[in-house]
Amino acid sequence: METLLIIIVGILGLIAIAQAVRVFELSAAVKGEDASSENVTDKDNRNQGILLLIFMIFMLGGFIAMIFGYSDVMLPVSASEHGVDIDNLWDISMWLIIVVFFITQPILFYFGYKFRGAKKKKAVYMEHNNRLEFIWTIVPAVVLAGLIIYGLATWSNIMNPVIGEGEEEPMVVEIYAKQFGWTARYSGSDNQLGYANVRMIGGTNTLGVDPDDANSLDDVITTELHLPVNRPVLFKFRSQDVIHSAYLPHFRVQMNCVPGTKTQFMFKPTMTTEEMRQDPDTQQKVANINEIRGERGDEAWQFDYVLLCNKICGSAHYNMQMKIVVESEEEYNKWMSEQKSFAELL
């Protein structure tokens, strides 16, 4: 039914346009103009110039409206340490972009309006100006140099974290991907993951962990990811079949899981699930969402961190997820003590 309606609306729209064009042409013909003449008339220039100006106002207005209107849908404050650095760099880059956008776009459209042509006007002959070219080469170059240096420093800190003396070793956790689900393997008390390979998959050993490797026995395999707050964690990623991407948007973490290779990402969660639920932005977002869900008759939603797949991986790619719980050390230890070790699993 909707399809039909849409098609009808589309056809009516087209008919309306065609009629408008005919009316326009006829009225022009009455006035002695040839509306389809190959060269535009002064009137065309004026009309189109004004339209450019109107478009500019709506575009910039719409942009501002979206910034305010959609502020609720965006991700809340970062729940990881390095995420704060990313967000700072993001804000600086975004402000730069907005400023350039709000300078260049109005100039472009305003020029389109202001210098609209007329038969009696003549353009100024100006073919180059080396000083101007120099300015708009050097200024972007200097700005970019700053952005590049800041960006590279941030990137380097994230990808090559330095563990200082006396600081805690990161907790090693394997994130294992396959069509279409996630599994976590904790490295246990020795903080070392046992050797694993797809060729050892069999029976209850769904991750292909080597039972003969002494490091394997205390590994703990779970389908929910629990992390103690403020403790660095080193993720090791593996995939069983195709490329997946472990995406933890609230922590500003993403890394591909590539079959045949191990990838890694280290970070420190700084907000527990409970703390994030108390965050004002999160509460606003959850309230908005629950209003929408209420209208649809869906049950109310409570905020949870989530791990999503962000690399096309097959038919159920859109629903490949794992719940993440960040909690206090005690809560985490309690949860961990309830899990079975790999040795017990076998």
């Binding site: 535009v40 220039n45 260049t104 472009l108 020029f111 389109g112 609209r116 042509g117 100024v124 708009w136």
Partner: peptide, 20 residues
């Protein structure tokens, strides 16, 4: 890219634009 964008905009400046 910025050089190109600025050059386009400057080409419009004080032109006699035929808005085809």
């Amino acid at each position: 890219s910025a050089v190109k964008a600025f050059n386009y905009i400057t080409t419009l400046w004080k032109g006699n634009l035929r808005l085809t």
